[in-house]
Lab assay of single mutants.
Amino acid sequence: MIVFVRFNSSHGFPVEVDSDTSIFQLKEVVAKRQGVPADQLRVIFAGKELRNDWTVQNCDLDQQSIVHIVQRPWRKGQEMNATGGDDPRNAAGGCEREPQSLTRVDLSSSVLPGDSVGLAVILHTDSRKDSPPAGSPAGRSIYNSFYVYCKGPCQRVQPGKLRVQCSTCRQATLTLTQGPSCWDDVLIPNRMSGECQSPHCPGTSAEFFFKCGAHPTSDKETSVALHLIATNSRNITCITCTDVRSPVLVFQCNSRHVICLDCFHLYCVTRLNDRQFVHDPQLGYSLPCVAGCPNSLIKELHHFRILGEEQYNRYQQYGAEECVLQMGGVLCPRPGCGAGLLPEPDQRKVTCEGGNGLGCGFAFCRECKEAYHEGECSAVFEASGTTTQAYRVDERAAEQARWEAASKETIKKTTKPCPRCHVPVEKNGGCMHMKCPQPQCRLEWCWNCGCEWNRVCMGDHWFDV
């Protein structure tokens, strides 16, 4: 396979590697080409510095992935760790964990309700045991953590790749202090920090972006993250068709209702045909949960890209028209025109101005929308079919299609509260000796007794199943 190397943020060049090629071997190839010592090179990928003893497969490097290699003399205490030698983080029983690669970060837990604080980093599902597709590297999971809308060759929703760059020099040479644990960490600028490894760059702020994971991409090709779309790892039924499908869209209502993408497309087109989208002054033209839940309008309007190009163009047109109407304007009634106009409040005669090729020149009556006339309008008909009709959803289907309910059931079956801080902690095999993952707590306690870890627990039921 081919990976592209950008040395000291210059133009990239291809390097041929195998899945079992080590990072140090990659350094040696680059060092020979650039005429520099291999031990002064640092390989940066997806916000993480890659260790010498890791392989291309370990690092989730795919065909035509772009890695950054910078030349920086080692500072005291760094060289041993980078070589894969006596790194205290690798000691058996050590409590410190390697910062998780962005290629394996899962933010789907952050669609849980606000009262489930902490689960994004504490609760991990076991539903990723799908067998890898044919042709994928051994052991590589097909679980997708992110979804994007690819405006490039795909023109559809695709699995996405999370990447990070330095907000100062805009190069992907920043190593994160810690990985993101929720969508806010990724979507809110300057929320996460790190250290830029580019020479002479003092940058410390992280800037995240997404790429389409279905095809090789260049540095400049980015895609918009659709953070309401998630892999259906909890096997929730769709609120409309009641099938279990994946991926799904999880509405931001209190129940976190789930809808499959085909039904979401149908829901949007139906509402669009009836012009029953909601115009929100802050958000724009949007839709609420299909069950009509309060405070559930979709905030990231790129989710409506699921409509496809033709329907999305209609959505944008109707949204612009609705904006004009909300501002007190009118639409030209001549067939084939429909231009938005903003006449004076007491102006009865409205002319669709033909300047700049935008208007048709038609003069019409503001009251009856017919060709302009003197005197009273002959008839004014009330528009028919403008009443909002509820999208029919079966109550039982709505009850079963809740992301929140599956989460709470998982928590109930696989977790116990920490005796000190009461945060839910998952036990997935292993011994009875637990350690609270909350940095402010870190209590060592017994899963069996529910009390602080002691010699009695150690001698009596340390390794009970």
Rank of each mutant, 00 (worst) to 15 (best):
V3Y: 03
V3L: 15
F7T: 02
N8V: 00
N8S: 03
H11K: 04
G12L: 04
E16W: 06
S19W: 06
D20P: 02
T21H: 05
S22N: 07
F24D: 06
Q25C: 05
Q25W: 05
L26I: 08
V29L: 15
V30E: 01
R33I: 06
G35M: 06
G35T: 04
A38I: 08
A38W: 04
D39W: 05
I44T: 04
L50F: 01
N52A: 05
W54D: 12
W54Q: 14
V56E: 00
N58I: 05
D60Q: 15
D60G: 15
L61D: 01
Q63E: 14
I66L: 07
H68T: 04
V70G: 00
Q71F: 04
R72T: 14
R75G: 13
E79L: 13
E79P: 12
M80V: 12
A82H: 07
G84Y: 12
G84E: 12
D86S: 11
D87S: 13
R89I: 13
N90T: 12
N90W: 09
E98H: 09
P99H: 13
Q100W: 09
S101K: 09
T103Q: 14
T103K: 12
V105K: 14
V105W: 10
G114N: 12
S116M: 08
V117D: 15
V117Y: 12
G118V: 03
T125D: 14
S127Q: 13
S127K: 12
S131D: 13
S131Y: 10
P133C: 10
P133K: 09
S136A: 13
P137A: 12
R140T: 13
S141K: 14
N144H: 11
S145N: 07
Y149P: 02
Y149F: 13
C150Q: 00
C154S: 01
P159C: 06
K161W: 06
K161V: 14
Q165G: 08
Q165F: 10
C166Y: 00
C166V: 00
S167T: 12
R170T: 06
Q171V: 07
T173R: 06
T173F: 06
T175Y: 08
Q178A: 12
W183L: 02
D185A: 00
L187G: 03
I188N: 10
P189L: 05
M192K: 05
S193G: 08
E195S: 11
C196Y: 02
C196W: 01
S198M: 08
C201F: 01
S205I: 13
A206G: 08
A206C: 05
E207K: 07
F209S: 14
K211W: 05
T217R: 07
D219I: 07
K220Q: 11
K220L: 11
E221M: 07
E221T: 08
T222V: 07
T222C: 08
S223L: 06
A225I: 08
A230W: 06
A230L: 06
T231Y: 09
N232I: 00
R234W: 05
N235H: 09
C238F: 00
C241S: 01
T242W: 11
S246P: 01
P247W: 03
L249N: 01
C253F: 00
N254A: 14
S255W: 07
S255I: 04
S255R: 08
C268D: 00
T270P: 02
T270R: 04
D274L: 06
R275G: 02
Q276C: 12
V278H: 11
V278E: 10
P281A: 09
Q282K: 13
L283V: 13
G284H: 03
G284N: 05
L287A: 03
C289I: 01
C289M: 00
V290D: 01
C293M: 02
C293K: 00
P294N: 07
P294M: 07
N295D: 13
L297Q: 05
L307S: 05
G308T: 05
E309M: 11
N313A: 10
Y315R: 01
Q316K: 13
Q317E: 11
C323H: 15
V324K: 06
L325A: 04
V330W: 04
L331S: 04
C332V: 02
R334V: 07
G336F: 10
L341I: 13
Q347C: 07
Q347P: 05
Q347Y: 07
R348D: 05
K349I: 11
V350A: 06
T351N: 08
C352L: 02
G355H: 12
N356V: 06
L358H: 15
C360Y: 02
G361T: 06
F362D: 04
A363Y: 08
C365F: 02
E367Q: 11
E367I: 15
C368Y: 02
C368T: 03
E370A: 07
E370N: 07
Y372G: 04
H373Y: 02
H373N: 02
E374S: 07
E376I: 11
C377W: 02
C377A: 02
S378M: 10
G385A: 10
T386Y: 13
T387W: 08
T387G: 10
T388G: 12
Y391I: 07
A397Y: 09
Q400M: 15
A406D: 15
K408I: 11
K408G: 10
K413H: 15
T414E: 14
P417I: 07
V425N: 15
N428G: 09
N428H: 11
G430P: 15
H433T: 05
M434R: 04
M434L: 06
C436G: 01
P437H: 11
P439H: 07
P439G: 06
Q440F: 15
C441E: 00
R442E: 08
L443D: 07
C449K: 02
C449N: 01
C449W: 01
C449V: 01
M458E: 15
H461W: 00
F463Y: 04
F463E: 00
D464E: 15
V465E: 15
V465W: 15
